[in-house]
Simulated assay, not measured.
Amino acid sequence: MSVMRSALLTVLAASVSLTVVASGQPARSSRFDVLITNGRIVDGTGSPWMRGDVGIVGDRIAAVGRLTGAGAAATIDATNLVVAPGFIDLLGQSEFNVLVDSRAASKITQGVTTEVTGEGSSIAPVNDRLVQEAAPSAKHFGVAQDWRTLEDYLRRLGERSHPAINMATFVGAGGIRNYVIGKDDRPATAAELERMKRLVAEAMEQGALGLSTSLQYVPDRFASTDEIVELAKVAARYGGVYFTHQRSESSRIFESLDEIFTIAERAGIPAEIWHLKTAYKANFGRMPEVLRRLEAARARGLDVTANQYPYTRASNGLDACLPLWVREGGLEKMIARLNDASERERIKKDMADSAAITWENQWYGAGGGDGVMIASVLNPDLRKWEGMTLTEIGKAM
């Protein structure tokens, strides 16, 4: 199926005005811009699918049903295909990508017309230091870093980028912490916490959906439960929600669930767990108890939910394989530790620890070098390693 055809078959997402035409009756208007015929219409309400047609005028759905005899400038035969509202990707990470290529082809061709982003760290707000940290990637892709607030970013999307998908974002607590404190592993002072709360409030006023965290990664991991609660209270005042990549998806998942329940209760905010899983083989079989605890929390009145993705891989930066203490403080400090022979021995020992509880040992959980594949790099000299596991790269070097 062509890209255009696939995109048109998800055009129902554009609907804000809908007229349902009874089966067998001609459309009230005999002329549409686009007429999709003979599709299996799944309308997203939970109703059974029905065979029918969809008539579109401009960027609005004008009619749904049996539109026999209606004319159109363009007709698409959707026989044996599903016509459905565009899918909402609840955890995409295209906020920078749509500035590089606004077509968002990888989303549109899968039927995704709306993306929610901002997992832990959001594209805004940013200060000069954070802009400088992101400069290598921005320069590589030719993106001018001319926004500082969420309002700036959304204005750029609407006035200049015009992405093919709708974009919505959380304000990331990790990004807020980085803005105010940096990547140091220490509690926020009272003054720093107040500044963080003001930044969350400003982002909520500018259109953020709520507060998010990604508590396995730096600097989110360094935030206490109390700190998150205070920021979540601000989001709650604006009717926002709290979404989280929880602190543990493996050996300490029950303690991690308790933290989410605490945040939801103390902040008075709906909470959702992104990509709920019991990670790594040692934890397979724990999901029934995870679900029981979620159900129990809901039974006592907490608005807590979860979602999943349908695949067995994860994707993040290669530094996620390193212990937290190695990443603490930022890139320069991390590189200095990696260049120190004695520190490297300590790093290797920690990465081989199957019982780590102070961090999520993704290296060990993925099966070491056999389970870690390089997906993409910026340095053209390293492109030859893309698509290879670290074990394969080690053998080839």
Rank of each mutant, 00 (worst) to 15 (best):
residue 56 I to W: 00
residue 154 L to Q: 12
residue 103 R to V: 12
residue 113 T to N: 02
residue 149 T to M: 04
residue 78 A to C: 03
residue 79 T to D: 07
residue 90 L to N: 01
residue 59 D to V: 09
residue 133 E to Q: 12
residue 151 E to N: 10
residue 72 A to H: 02
residue 141 F to Q: 08
residue 111 G to L: 05
residue 74 A to L: 07
residue 156 R to G: 13
residue 67 L to N: 02
residue 115 E to R: 01
residue 126 V to I: 15
residue 57 V to Y: 03
residue 63 A to T: 03
residue 109 T to D: 13
residue 144 A to W: 13
residue 87 F to V: 08
residue 85 P to H: 12
residue 126 V to P: 01
residue 98 V to F: 10
residue 148 R to H: 13
residue 132 Q to E: 13
residue 134 A to I: 12
residue 72 A to E: 00
residue 73 A to W: 04
residue 105 A to Y: 15
residue 71 G to D: 03
residue 150 L to H: 04
residue 152 D to L: 07
residue 156 R to V: 13
residue 102 S to N: 10
residue 156 R to I: 15
residue 76 I to C: 01
residue 105 A to I: 11
residue 105 A to V: 13
residue 151 E to S: 14
residue 104 A to C: 03
residue 152 D to R: 08
residue 118 G to N: 10
residue 57 V to C: 12
residue 78 A to H: 01
residue 124 A to T: 13
residue 68 T to E: 13
residue 142 G to Q: 06
residue 110 Q to K: 03
residue 65 G to H: 04
residue 96 F to D: 10
residue 129 R to Y: 12
residue 122 S to C: 01
residue 64 V to N: 03
residue 132 Q to L: 10
residue 153 Y to A: 01
residue 128 D to L: 08
residue 130 L to A: 04
residue 156 R to M: 08
residue 58 G to Q: 02
residue 113 T to W: 02
residue 156 R to Q: 13
residue 84 A to R: 04
residue 133 E to A: 11
residue 120 G to E: 00
residue 58 G to N: 02
residue 106 S to T: 10
residue 128 D to T: 10
residue 118 G to L: 00
residue 103 R to I: 07
residue 56 I to N: 00
residue 111 G to P: 03
residue 104 A to S: 10
residue 143 V to M: 02
residue 55 G to E: 00
residue 139 K to R: 15
residue 127 N to A: 02
residue 72 A to G: 03
residue 128 D to H: 08
residue 61 I to D: 00
residue 58 G to C: 05
residue 103 R to K: 07
residue 140 H to A: 13
residue 102 S to Y: 09
residue 69 G to W: 05
residue 113 T to E: 09
residue 147 W to D: 08
residue 147 W to N: 08
residue 133 E to V: 11
residue 153 Y to S: 07
residue 115 E to V: 12
residue 65 G to R: 09
residue 94 S to W: 13
residue 90 L to V: 08
residue 102 S to V: 06
residue 108 I to S: 04
residue 136 P to T: 08
